[in-house]
């Protein structure tokens, strides 16, 4: 079964972007153990200040919308109707919502939780794109074919 992997890379060689820094995701498509570059998907620029105001909790301390959800408004529980932070996050996650996993240098806790809800695996690693793809496709291939990951040493 074919699937896609989203990678946060600035040069196409190294996984060097944090999830928050990614302006465009590099998408690879995988079939079995074979993978190839599919496309580069831009993340739409969100007007965060507007969103925060619209959701009505800006006065309670959401000057920094990306963090506001966890810090400022206790009541927004990380769902999409939250106070700006998750709103933007949800949009960004939706861009790669059809991928099986996402690979970035770092992925914040809130984002990890959102990915978890969509059953998208998060790999926050610092390595080359090739190494990441090799290891992840090896893993999924074993998993999909119900084979053991056991390494004989």
């Amino acid at each position: 079964m074919a699937y896609k992997i989203a990678i946060g890379t600035s040069d196409g060689v190294n996984v060097d972007l944090k999830f928050g820094e990614v302006k465009s995701f590099t998408i690879y498509s995988v079939e079995g153990k074979e993978y190839g570059l599919l496309e580069v998907r831009d993340v739409p620029e969100a007007d965060t200040s507007k969103e925060a105001e619209a959701s009505g909790c800006a006065p309670s301390g959401c000057e920094q919308p990306t963090q506001g959800c966890s810090v400022g408004c206790g009541g927004c529980g990380g769902n999409s109707s939250g106070c700006g932070g998750p709103g933007e996050l949800t949009e960004k996650i939706a861009v790669i919502g059809d991928c099986r996993s996402v690979v970035c240098k770092k992925v914040g806790f809130q984002a990890q939780k959102q990915f978890e809800k969509k059953a998208i695996s998060v790999f926050d690693v610092e390595c080359t794109v090739k190494e990441a793809l090799d290891k992840i496709t090896f893993y999924y291939d074993k998993l999909d074919n119900h084979q053991s990951l056991k390494v004989n040493r």
Partner: peptide, 11 residues
């Protein structure tokens, strides 16, 4: 405890 997860299984 290292509390390993999926990432550590792969990498």
């Amino acid at each position: 405890c290292t509390s390993i997860n999926e990432k550590d299984v792969v990498f």
